[in-house]
Amino acid sequence: MQILKNNSSQVVIEAKNLRKEYQGKLALKGLNLEIGPGEIFCLLGQNGAGKSTTINLFLGFIKPTSGAAYINGLEVASNVTRIKESLAYIPENVMLYPNLTGIENLSLFSSLAGFKYSDKELRQYLENAGLPAEAAPRRVSGYSKGMRQKVGIAIAVAKHAKVLLLDEPTSGLDPKASNEFSELLLNLSNTGTAIFMATHDIFRSKAVGTRVGIMREGELVEVLPASDLEANELEKVYLNHMHL
């Protein structure tokens, strides 16, 4: 298939003939993809389509069977430590230390990335990410999923991440929390952050995506500009591919 490329001359996230095989079964079939700064690329697909495998390859959690994943021009498989310097990851359930406060989590993760902030600066990052001021000094064990995600966004901003990878970030969020999360992603994209989001959420993909890709059985079967379709039209295109 012909892949619709990003409109930027720069490529921040890239896959070149990326393949992953598990016990003789192809989970990812020669993925080719380019994502530029400020883009939000939303990848739709059913469970087992290869979305999480793609993210894990970009994170360096697993190695490709063939082909390569790149972050900021660096091949991920041979530069796992270096790519983490410019990358942030928000999984379906954000992994934070439950016995630490929001401020303490942000301080810890930003310091691991080489940044040291004052208490005032940490609070400002959390506030800018939409976390209520009264929640910042509370233990994360009492946070909702939406609140944990806001800490995750604050961590990404505080470590000056140029790449944000997300795996089903809106799963389980109520409409208000989903909308707030979408606004945070749009704000991040406006700063030049390249965002790759694997999701089931067709409406959210239309609302925030620059481009939307549809993955089926490990293959990227279509890529569309999000602005070209209404949400109901995108849903029809998606369902047509799932029923082939």
Rank of each mutant, 00 (worst) to 15 (best):
I214Y: 06
V223C: 01
M197Y: 10
R204W: 12
R216M: 11
K206G: 07
E235I: 00
E183W: 03
L185K: 13
L234H: 04
R211V: 10
E183P: 00
T191S: 14
L186K: 15
S227D: 14
L184D: 04
Y238K: 09
L184E: 13
E180H: 01
F203D: 13
P169S: 00
E222N: 09
L239K: 12
L173S: 06
L239Q: 11
L224V: 15
I195T: 11
D174W: 05
F181A: 04
L234C: 03
R204I: 12
T210W: 05
S182L: 06
E233F: 07
A231F: 01
M197G: 04
L229W: 14
V223N: 03
R204C: 03
Y238A: 02
G209L: 13
D228R: 07
R216E: 13
G218Q: 01
P175Q: 06
A194Q: 09
V212A: 11
N179G: 04
E222Q: 14
L224C: 02
M215R: 00
G209V: 14
D174H: 05
V221C: 06
P225M: 05
L224D: 01
E180A: 12
A194C: 09
P169R: 00
K236P: 02
F196V: 10
T199L: 13
S205H: 02
L239I: 11
L220D: 08
S205Q: 05
L229Y: 15
S205T: 07
E168A: 08
H200W: 06
L173N: 09
N187V: 03
S189V: 07
L220N: 05
G192H: 05
F203A: 13
L184I: 10
T210N: 11
E222D: 13
A207P: 05
S178E: 06
I195W: 10
K206T: 15
E230N: 05
D228K: 10
Y238W: 10
N187F: 01
Y238M: 07
P169E: 04
V223K: 00
S205D: 02
F203S: 11
T199R: 14
S227G: 02
N179Y: 12
N187T: 13
L224N: 02
S178M: 07
E180T: 05
E233K: 14
L184P: 03
G192D: 03
G213S: 12
F196Q: 09
V237N: 12
A194G: 07
D201W: 10
H241P: 03
S205E: 06
G192R: 04
A231L: 01
I195N: 06
L186R: 14
M215E: 01
N179H: 13
L184A: 13
V237R: 15
E219M: 08
V237G: 09
E235F: 09
A207G: 02
F196Y: 14
L239M: 13
S178G: 06
E180W: 02
E230T: 05
H241Y: 15
R204S: 09
N187R: 15
E183C: 02
A207Q: 15
S182Y: 12
T193E: 06
I202P: 10
N232I: 08
S189R: 14
A231N: 03
F196T: 11
V208E: 10
E219T: 14
P175I: 07
L188Q: 15
S205A: 15
G172F: 00
I202G: 10
D201K: 09
D228T: 08
E217T: 04
S171A: 15
E217D: 12
A198E: 14
L184F: 04
G213T: 12
N179L: 12
T170C: 07
E233M: 09
G192I: 03
L234E: 08
R211P: 11
